[in-house]
């Protein structure tokens, strides 16, 4: 039986074959897939904001790039994934509206992507592929069996990373 595990906004989950893990309609948020190719264990976190230290109310760890990545690594470790095996693929961080007067709001997608990359770099997790930026939403599905990330967008061909 193969289930599709759905991950919502500011949420995360882990996945093993034959199941598939997905998050729908990523906008300025970033979907971060971490994957242990040896054990075939995947984790997906859907972060909304770059930095937990800049926000007072930060009880949901999955909301931020920094704490989200830390927490999903722990979740995956409890399933048997090994941290030094991990690789990453990311998608999202779009700018959905072309705001012309609010720089901070405009760059949130870009900042989410930057923060994600910095965090991965700090942890020494290689970023294998990304589909980020631009101005459209993305639905992503990750197959831990093959290690491939499928990306769908409105009016665009399916991408496979």
């Amino acid at each position: 039986m193969n289930n599709t595990i759905k991950v919502g906004m500011a949420d995360a989950n882990v996945c093993k074959p034959p199941d598939v893990i997905t998050t729908l309609g990523l906008g300025s948020c970033v979907g971060i897939v971490l994957y242990d190719p040896v054990k075939k264990i995947a984790g997906l976190v859907h972060i909304m904001l770059p930095d937990s230290t800049k926000i007072i109310n930060n009880s949901n760890k999955y909301k931020f790039a920094d704490t989200g990545i830390d927490t999903i690594i722990q979740d995956m470790a409890s399933l048997g994934a090994i941290k030094r095996n991990l690789v990453a693929k990311i998608a999202g961080g779009a700018q959905m509206f072309s705001f012309n007067n609010n720089l901070e709001m405009m760059r949130i997608g870009e900042r989410n992507v930057e923060a994600t990359k910095n965090k991965l770099k700090k942890l020494g997790i290689p970023l294998l592929a990304e589909d980020t930026g631009a101005n459209y939403g993305r639905t992503i599905e990750f197959y831990p069996e093959t290690g491939l990330l499928h990306i769908r967008s409105v009016g665009k061909d399916r991408k496979i990373l």
């Binding site: 729908l24 300025s28 709001m105 459209y136 409105v154």
Partner: peptide, 27 residues
């Protein structure tokens, strides 16, 4: 109110914009 900003896309992607603003203050 600002000028209108329009986007045609998946509902989740569009709603992420106000959601992020709310995310700064709560869950």
């Amino acid at each position: 109110s600002s000028i209108p900003y329009m986007a045609i896309d998946m509902a989740g992607a569009i709603l992420s914009v106000p959601a992020i603003e709310f995310g700064k203050i709560g869950d």
